[in-house]
């Protein structure tokens, strides 16, 4: 069970690198789908089974389909390397590595690996999430439904050729 997490963590990181480094947008999108599915397996290992499946259905199965269809529609080609942003290229990578090191150090200090014990897996099935969602968090739930309505209207208006 435990080595499974590390296998999928490595898969996620490699696919994440592929998202950032690929020149063709379609390959980036496919790599992002791999990241999403690897993370879904990690969620499953962490006891969030409902969210793992929701991640695949909504994120990998709907949002990324939208991305892939838009890339096909706009016929996005290979990206040519540009030298417009020399500053970003020179300073970017070292700064990011410094950032990464800092945050990892902070995490290691705060949650030392040996010390943190595993909490028992709480009942995280759909029933438990449903009860929380519709009792304590019913207001954000209704607000997100309005948010989705606004997003649908906005997307239709923005993408129309003439209003």
């Amino acid at each position: 069970m435990v080595p499974l997490f590390y296998i999928f963590a490595v898969v996620a990181i490699l696919a994440g690198l592929s998202v950032v480094l690929q020149r063709t947008p379609v390959y980036s999108a496919l790599s992002l789908i791999v990241v999403l599915c690897a993370l879904a397996v990690v969620y499953l290992l962490l006891g969030a089974e409902f969210l793992a499946v929701v991640q695949v259905i909504v994120y990998a199965g709907a949002i990324m389909v939208l991305f892939v269809l838009v890339i096909m529609l706009l016929n996005a080609h290979r990206e040519e390397p540009t030298d417009r942003s020399r500053l970003a290229r020179i300073l970017g990578a070292p700064l990011l590595i410094v950032f990464l090191g800092e945050v990892l150090y902070a995490i290691w200090r705060q949650f030392p690996p040996e010390q943190t014990a595993a909490a028992p897996a709480a009942g995280a099935g759909p029933r438990a999430i449903g009860e929380l969602l519709f009792r304590n968090y019913v207001l954000p739930f209704e607000v997100t439904s309005i948010l989705i309505l606004v997003a649908v209207l906005g997307a239709v208006v923005l993408a129309k050729k003439q209003i």
Binding site: V58, Y59, A62, I63, L66, F67, V70, L73, L74, T144, L147, I148, V150, A151, V152, G154, A155, V156, L158, A159
Partner: peptide, 15 residues
């Protein structure tokens, strides 16, 4: 959910 809404609107803007 918010990522879904944001992706829809963002991609429409990109188009």
């Amino acid at each position: 959910v918010v990522a879904a809404a944001e992706a829809a609107v963002g991609l429409a803007i990109i188009i």
